[in-house]
Design a protein around this nucleic acid. Structure first.
Length: 441
RNA sequence: GGAGAGAUGGCCGAGCGGCUGAAGGCGUCGGUUUGCUAAACCGAUGUACGGACUCAAUCUGUACCGCGGGUUCGAAUCCCGCUCUCUCCGCCA
């Protein structure tokens, strides 16, 4: 969420910035918001003046009522009561006037809130301009793509033949985009997650186990609601409603919601392994085969909450990107990093880097990680603040990145590590979690 | 799921419908005193949104005692709804 004051002072920046993004702000939304804002402020001012007048009248009336209570002489009492009655006339009239103004504000508020929650943050100045993900800019490439001298199998075939993945029974139980992992498939899945988590703990991130079922506030606070509501599963028999998170980012970032943090304890660095749930609404027919796009997966996610400082945010953005790269390097999986262009940025993101890992069956680098920096967009919605050394309250900055998401990452692992005989070599870094070097039939 | 108790500032805790942004205490910060520390004493100590201004300091208005509504000239205080927390019972990984 943007600061209303900021929008008021930089309407053009917000309009053009929003237009560049995936969820486009209609420029008219900004205009409409500012119009409502001006209207609200003028009403509010009138209201405050009336309120002040009424407060003053009530303050004078107080002692008079006290006198009446004490007065025994009925003639004098009647006189005082008459005086009180006439003193009540003006505040009583004000009350009616105020009610009208309050109604007016009440009518403006929901629309304003809606607009404020939907308006996109402008992309940072260093983000490449582009219309969609085809215009993301590659900024780094690591590793060598393996050349196979035998016909390769995709992860689905490997998974079936080696008894690692059972998609048919997943679909039988839970519908499309569902799956079972079994045997070494399940172990491989857990091993990657463990490796990722262990590496993050070594780097000083606090490991967390988090709620994956949350109220509406964390969803809205992290920016997934209201615009992304369609993507979340909602529990239909709970009131107030709870939702399945699509990522532990929600729980980790909202962990300190409505808190004032001590600046001495910043930055906060958290890592959580959690299941993630995504409806994938609107993706029918896209990536239907295999483990690429599924409704439920597990992910190790890193979140950093730091001071309100652009340079510091950028520094952490690089750091959390590097953390993820290090995991891929440890797995020896070739990848590239792309600077996500304006048209592919989410509503609140100021900048984003995606890591795309090479997947032989797709014959392409495909997204496995996503590192976002938000500046204060999320913190403002979450009311996540700290008191700076100068004594001022400030909103924190928040950032997050995937450390590893599985089973998607099993696609490159199985495919890159396959052998001509149909077996799969276990990556060195995972062997201590599994205990074998090779998975065979 | 059933029964009961509660929610006040950073924390603890008081609060007959008016003089309560809220006693008292603790904590924190500044100062005085002190060989150092401690103690004592004095002072300060919220947030949000407006307005004025030489837009920084400052001054000023309004709101905020879990949340939302109501009664009233006036609500932390009375009434209604909701949420949350705690205790006991039941169920349970």
């Amino acid at each position: 969420m943007l600061d209303l004051k900021f929008i008021r002072e930089n309407p053009d920046l917000v309009k053009t910035g929003g237009l560049q993004k995936r969820m486009r702000n209609a420029a008219s939304d900004v205009d409409r918001l500012l119009q409502l804002d001006a209207q609200k402020r003028s009403v509010q001012q009138k209201l405050q003046e009336l309120q002040a007048e009424q407060n003053k009248a009530s303050k004078e009336l107080g002692p008079l009522m006290g006198q009446i209570k004490k007065e025994k002489d009925s003639a004098k009492k009647a006189e005082l009561e008459a005086k009180a009655e006439s003193a009540k006339a003006r505040p009583a009239a004000i009350k009616i006037e105020m009610a009208a103004l309050e109604d007016e504000i009440k009518k403006l508020d929901p629309e304003m809130q809606g607009l404020l929650l939907s308006i996109a943050a402008p992309p940072d100045a260093d983000v490449p301009i582009g219309k969609d993900d085809t215009e993301n800019v590659e900024i780094k490439k690591w590793g060598t793509v393996r050349q196979f001298d035998f016909p390769i199998k995709d992860h689905i075939t490997l998974g079936r033949e080696l008894n690692l993945i059972d998609i048919d029974r997943g679909v039988k139980l839970a519908g499309t985009r569902s799956y079972f992992l079994l045997g070494y498939g399940a172990l491989l899945h857990q091993a990657v997650l463990r490796l990722a988590q262990d590496m993050m703990i070594e780097r000083g991130f606090v490991p967390m186990s988090v709620p994956v079922l949350v109220r509406h506030e964390p969803m809205e606070g992290t920016g997934y609601f209201p615009l992304g509501r369609e993507q979340a599963y909602a529990m239909s028999n709970e009131d107030p409603a709870v939702y399945l998170v699509g990522t532990a980012e929600v729980s980790l970032t909202a962990y300190h919601m409505n808190e004032t943090l001590d600046v001495k304890n910043l930055p906060r660095k958290y890592v959580a392994m959690s299941p993630c749930f995504r409806r994938e609404a609107g993706t029918y027919g896209k990536d239907t085969a295999g483990l690429y796009r599924i409704h439920q997966f597990d992910k190790v996610e890193q979140v950093v909450i730091c001071r309100n400082d652009v340079e510091e945010s950028k520094k952490w953005h690089q750091a959390i990107l590097q953390n993820a790269e290090d995991v891929l390097q440890k797995l020896n999986l070739p990848y590239r990093v792309v600077a996500v262009c304006t048209g592919d940025l989410g509503q609140g993101q100021a900048a984003k880097f995606d890591i795309e890992t090479w997947m032989p069956s797709r014959n392409a680098y495909s997204e496995t990680h996503s590192a976002s920096r938000f500046y204060e967009f999320q913190a403002r919605r979450l009311n996540l603040r700290y008191r700076d050394e100068d004594g001022k309250m400030k909103f924190c900055h928040t950032l997050n990145n995937t450390v590893i998401a599985s089973p998607r990452i099993l696609i490159p692992i199985l495919e890159m590590y396959q052998n001509p005989d149909g077996s799969v070599t276990v990556p060195e870094a995972l062997r201590k979690y599994i205990g074998v070097e090779k998975i065979t039939t």
